[in-house]
Computed example of a mutant assay.
Amino acid sequence: MASDLPAVAAFTDSFLPTVNGVTYTVSTWRDRWHARGGEMPIVYPRSTHVPENGEYPVSSLPFPFYDGYRIAVPRAPASVRNVDVVHAHTPFGLGVAAWRLAEKCDVPLVATYHTPTAEYAEYVGPDAVTGFVRDASERWERWFLDRADLVLTPSDRTRDHVRDLGVATRIESLQNGVDTEWFRPTDGDDFRARHDLPDGPLVGYTGRHGYEKRLSDLLAAAEGIDATLVFGGDGPAREELEREAAERDVDARFLGFLDRDELPAFYSVLDAFAFPSPVETEGLVALEANACGTPVAGVNAGALSETIVDGETGYHYEPGDVDGFRTAIRRTLDESDRLSENCLASRDDVSVERAIDDLEEHYRSLW
C-alpha cells in the first residue's frame, strides 16, 4: 500500500510479553500506523516474545528490581536505519539507542514521557538510597528529553510535570488513545459466571499491583460499602493486598492476570472502576473502562485529575482521604446509569484513531 506517511522507528524498553500502558500504546500505534500504510519498526529488549515482522529484539538482561522490565544493550539494529523519524518511548536503555540513531541519520527525535521513573525509586533499594535514585532519575530524564526535538506527554498534567523538571524543548500533550473498536460495552454475564462473582454491585481495578498504585487505599475505602471488590492483574503487592483484604474482612476477589480478550467483559461487568494511583501519566485503564461504559472513582492527582471528568465520567477524591474515596465510590455507584451514558458519549474523544491523527500532525510539524 502506497503511503506518504513518514517511516518511524520506535524504541521501547518495555514490550511484549509484558502487558502495561507502554506496551499497549507502542503496539497499538504500530498497528494503526501500518493500517494507514506507514512503517513503524519496533526495537525492544529481547525476551520470550517471538518477534513478528517489523519487530527487532536486541540483547537484554532482566532488571532485578522491577519485574517485567529488562535492560537492553543500547544499540539500533542495522535493519533499522532508513527512517524519517525516531520515536523513543523510554529515556533509558533503548532511548539512548534512539537518540544515537537520530543523530547518525540526522532525523528528528521524538520522545514520549510515559512514566515518572523517579516515582519508582523505592523498588531499587533501601530508603537510604531512594532520594538519590529519584534525583538521579530526574536529572537524566531532563538531560535526555532536552535532546529531543519534540516531547509528547499523555496528558496536560504530565506535560506540566515535564516542564517543572526544567525541560526546555518543545512539549505537547497527546493522549495515547483507546481502541474503541475493542473496548466497548459487552455482556458480562459469562465473565461473572466464569470467575464465580456474586450478584450485586462490583467495584474493580485491573493493572499492576504495585505499591505505588496505593491499592490498599481501595481496601480501606471498601469497608462499609455493600459491593464486591474485583482485582485483575498481578504484581509485587498482591500477596500483601490479599492478606489485608482478609484482615479487613472485605469481600475481594483476586483474579490474577486477565488476557486482553477478557478485558471488555471485565470492565462491562463492573458498576464502578476504582483507581487510587497518584502516579499515572494518563491512566489508560480508566479510559478503557469509560469506553466500556463504566464510570471511575479515582484520586485527584496525576493525570487522573483530567482523565476523570468529575461529575461526568466519575468522581474524584483527594490523595490520602480514604473517607473521600469511599464517598466517591458510593456516588459513582449511585449515579452509575447517568455517568455511564456520559462515558459512552465521549468514546470518540478518547479513541486511538484520533490519537494517530494527532500523532501524524506532530511528526509532520518537525519539517
Rank of each mutant, 00 (worst) to 15 (best):
T12L: 05
L16F: 12
L16A: 14
T18I: 05
G21W: 04
W29Y: 13
M40N: 04
I42G: 02
V58M: 06
S60G: 12
I71L: 14
A72H: 01
A78I: 04
V83C: 08
V86F: 12
A88G: 07
L101R: 13
A102F: 08
C105L: 15
T112Q: 03
T117E: 05
A118V: 02
A121C: 10
E122D: 05
V124N: 03
G131P: 01
F132M: 08
A136E: 03
E141A: 14
D146C: 05
L150I: 03
R157Y: 13
D160L: 12
R163A: 13
V167R: 00
T180Q: 13
E181T: 10
W182F: 15
T186H: 10
R194A: 15
H195K: 11
H195Y: 15
Y205N: 10
Y211E: 10
L215Q: 03
L215E: 03
A220L: 14
E223C: 04
E223P: 00
G224F: 00
G232V: 14
L241C: 09
E242N: 03
R243W: 01
R248K: 11
D249A: 14
V250I: 14
R253W: 07
R253Q: 12
R260N: 09
P264A: 13
Y267A: 02
F273G: 02
V279A: 07
G283Q: 09
L284R: 07
A286Y: 04
G293K: 04
P295C: 13
V299A: 11
A301P: 11
E306Q: 12
V309Y: 02
G311I: 09
E312S: 08
T313R: 09
Y317T: 12
Y317F: 15
P319D: 01
G320P: 08
D321A: 10
R326H: 14
I329Q: 01
S340E: 14
L344S: 06
D349E: 13
A355V: 00
E361K: 07
Y363W: 08
